[in-house]
């Protein structure tokens, strides 16, 4: 492999990893803290993308306003889903949760079809982020993708600071370790759950907004990415933010190098990685023992 190809693939892997982290972090938080498997997490990703398309392209709102409104709307929607549908399921069997949240996927996908039709839509890259950087004659890289990687990194650092340094973060960490002990200590876990879920929904919506200009905005767009996000969560260890970060980078890098080194089996590479890691560490890289 030439050095230029290696560098580009490295960039690709990091950039894809950052996008995956935004989705996987919300997923791992809701599972770790609330113990809920939320298959519908991908729907927040999709709705974020659709809303920014609606606000920015159809209503022609300024982009920052469109993005902020889309995130707020998804957080509100997420909170309603959490209060009305998921909160009653906290102590239920995982199978019940999977069934209900799978039902939510179908509902949200169908809702997208009703509201926006079956057509494929797209969001434009904002003017200041168009074009590509010519690092050398062989290395040309889209500016927007660098911005995407940057945004992901900023979110990762922010999330790390919240979880590691704040009181809320402490409760979240404790909650993901032993939920019943946290409530026994007199901490009201209800609002913490709502907060964590809202944060997860906001991150998924942000990922949808950031991904909209490179992906297509279409019904079911969340279903494609949620599978890979689950792989990330499993590799990193369920409930661990650090795990989601490392897992996302690993999946991103293996995916982009796999496509060059093993083109015929590239779609299998990340699943093989997951299998190997699970053999070595059954609870994922940073997962707590069962």
């Amino acid at each position: 492999m030439q050095l230029s190809t290696f560098l580009i693939q490295l960039l690709n892997g990091l950039q894809y990893g950052m996008l995956l982290f935004l989705i996987a972090s919300g997923l791992t938080l809701t599972f770790g803290v609330m113990g809920i498997i939320n298959l519908a997490h991908g729907a927040f990703f999709m709705i974020g993308a659709y809303l920014v398309f609606q606000f920015a392209r159809i209503y022609e709102w300024p982009l920052p306003l469109a993005c902020a409104s889309a995130i707020v709307a998804v957080v509100v929607l997420g909170s309603i889903v959490e209060r009305a549908v998921l909160a009653p399921l906290v102590d239920r069997d995982h199978l019940d949760q999977v069934l209900v949240t799978y039902g939510l996927i179908l509902i949200f996908d169908e809702l997208a079809v009703v509201l926006w039709g079956k057509d494929v839509h797209a969001a434009e890259i904002p003017a200041m982020l168009r074009g590509s950087v010519h690092i050398s004659d062989m290395i040309v890289y889209p500016v927007y993708r660098l911005a995407l990687a940057g945004a992901g990194l900023v979110c990762a650092i922010g999330l790390y600071l919240i979880v590691a340094k704040t009181r809320i973060g402490m409760i979240v960490r404790a909650g993901s370790h032993d939920r019943s002990m946290v409530s026994a200590l007199g901490i009201n876990v209800g609002p913490v759950f709502a907060l964590v879920f809202g944060l997860g929904a906001a991150l998924a919506a942000l990922a949808g907004i950031l991904a909209a200009p490179i992906l297509s905005v279409s019904p079911g767009m969340g279903d494609k990415i949620i599978i890979i996000a689950f792989v990330v969560v499993v590799i990193g260890g369920i409930g661990s933010i650090k795990g989601a970060f490392v897992g996302a980078l690993l999946v991103g890098l293996f995916d982009s190098f796999g496509k060059v080194l093993f083109p015929t089996v590239s779609s299998l590479v990340i699943y093989a990685l997951m299998a190997l890691i699970l053999v070595w560490r059954p609870n994922g890289l940073f997962g707590k023992a069962a």
């Binding site: 230029s4 690709n12 062989m138 290395i139 889209p142 494609k224 496509k259 060059v260 779609s267």
Partner: peptide, 20 residues
Amino acid sequence: QKWPGLKELDYQAYFADVLA
């Protein structure tokens, strides 16, 4: 000849090879 999967989201990783 490259054959990305149906569920492929991001083709960027294939493009380095095209440039090369």
